[in-house]
Amino acid sequence: MKFLYLADLHYARHHAGQTLTRWRWYVHSFGPMANEAYSLFERGTREGWLSANVEPRRDEEDSKTVFYNTNEVVPSDMMVSVGKVREWIKRFGDDTPRLLRYVYGSTEPMDGAREGEPLDFSRAQPLDAAPLKGRSPTNEEKRRFAEISARLKARYDSMAAANATVSDGPRDSAFFRDLPVDDERIGGEVVLTFKGR
């Protein structure tokens, strides 16, 4: 659901607030919601290009979360081929808390939105226009960041010192003689040939 919202947001940022899907997005307790998305999920499950995995929620008794996965063939009218959305999926796909922080804290329609109210995509601006101002980190967050940075630096320095003593061996005539020679053939196939063997 969140990635469909982000697809509409990205489109709206470059089309004067008009969304790609034309769905009516509103604020729900779990974030941006569109009833049309559920219809799409049901259609996908029925037609077989989506599969639903239902898992019990840990935070609420008798509540379930449904994860939808695309199967091999997705109808072309359902494909979101927006590069920015692919980037978001890569960035947030396995990090739900980070995705939620981004959706709630860094997207214009969610800024100041209230439960049940429609989201206003006309406020969406290209990213290079005027970034939203986030809150400053707390002293505790600054302290934790400094602590983590110091640990990472110490680990990096330790690995750099260990690597400084490693030699990658001599690069004499025998080394260069035994390097493979690549030969590109018609059709783009590349074959490596070892001269010494």
Rank of each mutant, 00 (worst) to 15 (best):
V66W: 09
L100W: 06
K90E: 07
S136I: 01
D157P: 01
E115N: 09
V103C: 11
A129S: 15
R177H: 09
L179G: 04
P180W: 03
L119W: 04
Q125A: 11
I148V: 13
N69F: 05
R135A: 12
V166N: 03
E147W: 05
D183L: 15
L99W: 02
P126Y: 05
R123L: 15
T138M: 04
D120W: 04
S158V: 02
R171Q: 02
F92K: 09
A162P: 00
G187N: 01
V191T: 14
Q125I: 05
G93R: 02
T70C: 14
P180T: 05
V181Y: 00
E108C: 00
D183M: 14
R86N: 09
E115T: 07
A161R: 04
G83N: 10
S136R: 06
F176W: 14
L119H: 06
L119T: 10
L99K: 03
S149G: 03
E189H: 08
R155I: 02
N163A: 14
V82K: 03
Q125T: 10
G188Y: 01
E184S: 08
K142G: 02
R171V: 00
A161S: 06
M159S: 10
S173A: 15
M159T: 11
E189C: 01
R114T: 14
Y104K: 07
D183F: 14
V82S: 12
R86P: 00
D77N: 14
F175C: 07
M159H: 12
L132K: 06
T138H: 06
R143C: 04
S167G: 15
D157V: 00
I148W: 07
R101E: 13
R114H: 12
T165G: 14
E147S: 12
D128G: 03
V74F: 10
M159Q: 13
G83R: 12
L179N: 02
S158D: 12
S158W: 00
D94S: 11
P109G: 07
D183N: 15
S136F: 03
R91G: 01
V181C: 06
F175I: 09
I186Q: 12
N139W: 10
S122Y: 05
R91D: 04
I186F: 10
P75I: 10
P137F: 04
A154T: 08
F67K: 11
P97A: 06
E141W: 02
T107H: 07
D178F: 04
S63C: 11
Y104G: 03
E87M: 07
R101Y: 05
G112C: 04
L132M: 08
V66C: 14
Y68F: 15
E108A: 15
Y102I: 00
V166D: 00
R171M: 02
